[in-house]
Amino acid sequence: MSEIVNILLAVLYLLVFPGFLFLFFYGLFCEYFDRKLYARMQNRVGPPLFQPFADFVKLLAKEDIIPEKADKGMFSIVPLFAFAGVLTAILYIPIWRTDAVLSFEGDLVVVLFLLTIPSFALFFAGWHSTNLFSQIGAVRTVTQLFGYEIPFFFACLAPALIMGTWSISGILSQTVIRPEVLILLILAFIIAVISLQAKLERVPFDAPEAETEIAGGSLVEYTGRRLAIFRLMFNIKMVICAALITALFLGGPVLFPAVPGPEFIGYLLGFVVFLLKTLFVVFLLTMMRTVFARVRIDQLLKFCYGWLIPLSIVQFLLLILVRSMGWFA
């Protein structure tokens, strides 16, 4: 009996909450939030609330074209591959309480790994489209990957270092005990947000899909439902990355100071706090998109290796110093 309940619960987690259905709507909402803020900062009105949903439905209903020269198998399987990758990652991130649906020691590495899948999917998508622009985009995607991934990993592993655990839920429960540690992680937070912008391939780090240079990069040949899945994947990736950063650096669904009350209200409150914190991260990402110009791919690499990586090493050294002095035992 309890096994069946467990299986049903797992299906529920995977498909409804916090899995597919929640991510679908929250991802679309985040796109709306991003676009609306972007428009407001440009003194415009911006899209209506249902806009991302309308885009998604419309794309599903459009004609599906596979270019004659493209590798048909790869071309069609890659979007699903990327989509499945990001969807799995949510299960390890705490959303309404300090522990996630699934967790084990080292799930942080698994999540970080799952979040790199879309970049590779994008590379394959671009490469197998056999369009010149998409191939340039594909090569740039991978080039950029080597730039931002190292500082992003470093920044995300910094909390793990200071908390002494490699599980996201573990880090979060440690944070609840000692919230003052987060002050030490401000530098890592900034690095994580900047490299996240590069990971999501948005301005100023959108060289792989630069609209005015290579006409949209890897996705130039994609139409219809495959494009819809890719776009949804980007939105969900943004949500999950924001959630990860929230969990690692902002205390996830925990409200400081904690409000006493029944468990149910605590969960609900935690969920609301989680939403607000992720929206704050999305707001930071939108702000960056608004006020910067695109940098070239070589300048991006220079920036990552010249600034972000040294800074994240400085952060590491600081944390090691703090730990060895025994201030946080």
């Binding site: 900062m41 440009q42 003194n43 415009r44 301005v203 100023p204 959108d206 630069a210 609209e211 005015t212 608004t290 006020v291 910067f292 110009a293 695109r294």
Partner: peptide
């Protein structure tokens, strides 16, 4: 020119 370097806000303003 702003649009070409991805600086759409400058473009809009």
């Amino acid at each position: 020119a702003g649009h070409e370097i991805g600086f759409d806000t400058l473009f809009m303003y």
